[in-house]
Design a protein around this nucleic acid. Structure first.
Lengths: 166, 166
DNA sequence: AATTTACGTCAGCCTTGTTGACTTTCCAAG
DNA sequence: CTTGGAAAGTCAACAAGGCTGACGTAAATT
């Protein structure tokens, strides 16, 4: 519809066929994306939920349970089950907040950091290979489309995190 | 390594920081990607597994159970549970094979096609918005990276499907 | 005739998500 | 100081959707 002046070459990438292929690419790629960490985790008592918790605690040490809840988009009961096992097993440390003692601040223990490293090494290796194969231009496009696909709230979180990290 | 002549600008997109952001982008984008169909499905008795089955039966009408198994990467017991409810509810038809009578060929009924439409309309709408926001160049990069991220077997399947469809 | 293949099904288990109800701790406002 | 409400944790129950193992049947293949 509309889009005056762009001529016939444009908008071909918006056909239902193209979109369907994008959808399937997303589905299959996500499988690859999670495959390596999943392989590491199964055999241990942990699953993908533990991986996610560990990842974000690593990224933002001292984050509170509530923060994590919002990022992960699960209920506190669900997160708590995961967190409890990680604390029990000595991979995560939960410290009572100094300012607000209701809050618990989460940190990886050395052993937790070790597992995090193993998981993210595997995941980054796949990502790196894909990035390298596709090239910097493609990576930029990849990131643009992914960001545009996020829910607006998450996109804002994601992008603000990006600015401070650049 | 190598990449002669490109100078210092290259390979910056392969830093651990960049890869970590790509990983998180993938995570958050996938949530957005599944959010709309999930919303439609919950309230009905169906979930994401039903969506996937419906999607691929729609894409390849007459596909066999075994085909579907391989594409979805689940066990037959798991798929069967989903498929049974879809057949019982009259969304999917399972026809005994004419050549090989051991096989069951799967088709969407009109009602199944109706649900498929609702689900894929929602998912395509988000995809279309993201594609439009990012532009054709970015979409090409998006697809390149995703394909490079798949497991090799799936990538082959995916790409051969692409050729015949172009 | 024996074996393999495709499919279905029963039973049981695990992970990870959900709701609902309840407690404890603590901050902050009245 | 008391009280209201937020943050966190806990218990219980449940559901979806993965998994394995075992078994049955029909059809194709050898």
């Amino acid at each position: 519809m509309s889009e005056p002046g762009v001529g016939g070459e444009s908008l071909l990438f918006l056909t239902d066929e193209q979109l369907r292929k994008g959808i399937e690419a997303m589905f299959f790629a996500y499988r690859g994306f999670t495959a390596d960490p999943d392989r590491i985790l199964d055999g241990m008592d942990y699953g993908r939920a533990h991986h996610r918790a560990i990842h974000f605690i690593h990224r933002t040490p001292g984050t509170t349970v509530n923060n994590l809840l919002n990022i992960l988009g699960v209920t506190k009961q669900s997160l708590n089950r995961v967190l409890r096992t990680l604390v029990e097993d000595g991979l995560v440390e939960s410290r009572v907040g100094r300012e607000d003692k209701r809050e618990r601040h989460l940190f990886l223990t050395p052993r937790g950091a070790e597992l995090e490293r193993a998981l993210s090494d595997a995941q980054r290796a796949r990502m790196r290979a894909a990035y390298r194969a596709a090239g910097p231009q493609a990576v930029q496009g990849f990131r643009q489309v992914l960001e545009a696909m996020m829910d607006p709230d998450l996109r804002r979180q994601f992008q603000s995190q990006k600015e401070s990290g650049a």
